[in-house]
Amino acid sequence: MSLWEYANPRKFLTTSERLLPWFWGLAGLCLVAGLIWGFFFTPDEARQGATVKIIYLHVPAAMLAINAWIMMLVASLIWLVRRHHVSALAARAAAPIGAVMTLIALITGAIWGQPMWGTWWEWDPRLTSFLILFLFYLGYIALWQAIDNPDTAADLTSVLCLVGTVFALLSRYAVNFWNQGLHQGASLSLDKEEHVANVFYLPLLVCIAGFILLFVALVLYRTGTEIRARRMAALLARERAGA
């Protein structure tokens, strides 16, 4: 029994079918509980007032925006090295989720920034690099959609993901150098001195768990959809060839 058995599409489908209800359920539970806890039962922060409640959406979305890309990178590498189709399709399935998460992080950030910094948008390094990350997601998705042959598309997008990762990191440092920002430091550090106070920290953790579970559920589900779509295309092609 090894992990690679799940690279078999049929095995992947049956297993994910069994796991999915759990992930959907837990994700819904954590999100509802965390957001209600955060929205109704946490105090206002001294300086930021009620806007601090936005943190329960902003931080998890931003975390996932980055981690979705990392997951795509790993999946692309697995595809390039071991040629497992499920892996390539999982990368494809994850990209739109990552893009939406980036968008949520950007929008909530802008809404939050308006009363706090007095501006919707500031060319702050973190904001700017998220915008650039969003562009990378768009390019990646567009490349997948532009190419008809699925294996060619998987190869090309995988290489783009690798090259894009290097350039995204470079952009991050370039942007840091280019402008000093308004954005506060890490809100999640394990270092007690640095992270946000416990009243905000605990519901935030629940929300993060909810977002991660939702991401896993969505990736599993969408990968299943991609596998079926691929199988359908193959069957239709055979049908046409037979007819």
């Binding site: 936005i54 949520i104 929008i107 909530t108 939050w112």
Partner: peptide
């Protein structure tokens, strides 16, 4: 501010 952020997300 807070409601629009929650709504959009």
């Amino acid at each position: 501010t807070v409601l629009s952020a929650y709504g959009v997300s």
